[in-house]
């Protein structure tokens, strides 16, 4: 089967940056920076970007480019015994692609609501009860919200049309439109926010350095965790995207551009979000607003701030949710492509057929997130998939490649086609620094979850929805790797 390729380097870069810049840049990074020492955290963050984020990006770009396949095919080509690792990453992407579609769907609905500020004065009540019809626990699904369901359908329809058109005409064209749109809307929101009264209060929260945090282990773990989650590494995406690169591609430079551009977007959104936080604090006479991260930041705190804006609040609201939609869609298509390409590789079926079947399947499962229990389920699944799934696959990936594969093969491959060269420091970062950090993150996550059940949910709900999901995808990855490739020859010839 002929493999599609990126039309230009610019197209690949936009797609890779589009995949990295997601909802985490908007609603996770600003709060983590604020929580962990402001300006000091940013320095730790850049250190983490250079010592873990970009080295892993170089690793994954080299893997995809050298072995020319989706994650399972790439790992199977390295060693048949490693194929399950690729499927583990793909199954994580599968789960994320499903719940991510629900969040984008909420943003689409809120984009429409913003024209007449339909969320009213009590934005939390509107979001939880009027919009989501939330139930009392994750194990009670409640009623189906038709407007949410309709928005989810739109997300899958968009995903279908983009992926169905292939790499060049679908993903590349979509990113060439969505990424500039995302950049422009973010810049407009940032400048509007900076000129709001009291914005400086928020910027002081965000940037004032707290030097005591430099010795705080949790600030370092959060910085590395943020870099790791944000760059879309360890869940099959970057391996898949780089497999579509033409033979002559500057891998190392591409990795640096992707890493730094992701940081640029994170900083722009942090400035915008915290200027808005400052504005709200100023209006409330010095009281800092609650809910400064996650879905509540986007769907309750920001709408509340938009209500208070002095000039054209509807326009700013529409622009904000357009930003969330663009950031979400560019990530969603990359996550879905990681799954679709793996199935295409394994079964040797036409792209159009696999994309159609997967999008129908994705939509059907997403219905779960249009119920009253959807937000709880999303919260639990997201916590376990991110904190255990991605961290574990990342850890196994760097450990397996470092200890059972010669990293110099990848280093030489990257150096041969790149302008900027990497040396043995890269080997040390991949072989020692990254596994140690991931192990620290994993240990800390386990410790936190054992000490206090996540989010105050019942142990039963966490076991059924969280631990079981994490365990199930791990077992399934082994089972899927046992299915035969349509042609065994596909595993040969590229070592």
């Amino acid at each position: 089967m002929k493999t599609d390729e990126w039309k230009s380097r610019y197209g690949f870069l936009l797609a890779a940056i589009g995949s990295s810049v997601g909802l985490g840049n908007i609603w996770r990074f600003p709060y983590i920076a604020y929580e962990n020492g402001g300006g000091v955290f940013l320095i730790i963050y850049f250190f983490a970007l250079l010592t873990a984020g970009i080295p892993i990006l170089i690793l994954e770009f080299s893997l995809g480019h050298k072995f020319k396949g989706s994650a399972p095919l790439t790992f199977a080509r390295i060693n048949k015994k490693l194929e399950w690792l690729g499927w583990w990453q793909v199954l994580i992407s599968l789960i994320i692609s499903i719940y991510y579609s629900a969040v984008i769907a909420w943003a689409i609905a809120y984009f429409v609501f913003s024209f007449d500020l339909q969320w009213g004065v009590n934005t939390i009540d509107f979001f939880l009860h009027d919009f989501l019809g939330i139930t009392e626990s994750p194990l009670t699904l409640g009623s189906l919200r038709i407007n949410v369901l309709f928005s989810i359908f739109i997300v899958w329809l968009i995903t279908y049309f983009i992926l169905n058109s292939g790499i060049k005409k679908g993903i590349e064209v979509a990113n060439k439109f969505l990424m500039p749109l995302l950049f422009v809307t973010m810049i407009i929101i940032m400048f509007r926010s900076i000129f709001l009264p009291g914005s400086y209060i928020g910027l002081n929260f965000l940037f004032t350095p707290d030097f005591s945090k430099i010795l705080d282990v949790s600030a370092w773990v959060d910085a590395y965790g943020q870099v790791f989650f944000s760059l879309s590494v360890a869940f099959a995406i970057m391996i898949t995207y780089s497999s579509y690169l033409p033979k002559k591609s500057d891998i190392i430079n591409n990795a640096f551009i992707t890493g730094f551009m992701d940081a640029c977007f994170a900083l722009i959104s942090a400035i915008a979000i915290f200027s808005i936080v400052g504005f709200m604090t100023y209006n409330a006479g010095g009281e800092v607003p609650k809910n400064l991260q996650g879905v509540f930041l986007a769907f309750a705190t920001i709408p509340k701030a938009i209500n208070q804006m002095p000039f054209m609040p509807s326009l700013i609201g529409a622009l904000f949710f357009l930003t969330v939609i663009s950031a979400g869609i560019t990530s969603e298509i990359s996550i879905t492509e990681a799954v679709v390409s793996s199935i295409i590789n394994k079964l040797h079926r036409p792209r159009k057929e696999i994309v159609l079947i997967y999008c129908i399947f994705g939509f059907i499962v997403s219905i779960l997130f249009a119920t009253g229990g959807g937000l709880f389920i999303l919260d639990i699944v997201d916590h376990f998939v991110n904190n255990y799934g991605i961290v574990c696959t990342g850890l196994v990936e760097v450990a397996a490649l470092s200890w059972f594969f010669d990293l110099n093969i990848l280093k030489d491959h990257a150096n041969n086609i790149s302008d900027f060269k990497i040396n043995n420091i890269w080997n040390i970062l991949i072989k020692f620094v990254t596994p140690i950090i991931l192990l620290c993150i994993l240990t800390l996550n386990i410790y936190k979850d054992i000490r206090i059940p996540y989010g105050g949910y019942s142990v039963k709900a966490l076991t059924y929805l969280g631990w079981s999901t994490a365990l199930l995808i791990f077992i399934l990855s082994f089972l899927i790797s046992k299915i035969k490739w349509y042609d065994k020859e596909i595993l040969k010839g590229l070592k």
């Binding site: 402001g38 300006g39 400086y200 910027l203 551009i257 730094f260």
Partner: peptide
């Protein structure tokens, strides 16, 4: 905005945008 916050903001923006622009220019020159 206090001075230390302003300095940290400028440093962060210079590192992020400086890094991105440096590598983009490097790619364009090739």
């Amino acid at each position: 905005m206090n001075t230390s916050a302003l300095i940290m903001m400028i440093i962060s923006l210079v590192i992020a945008f400086g890094g991105a622009i440096y590598f983009i220019l490097k790619a364009l020159r090739k």
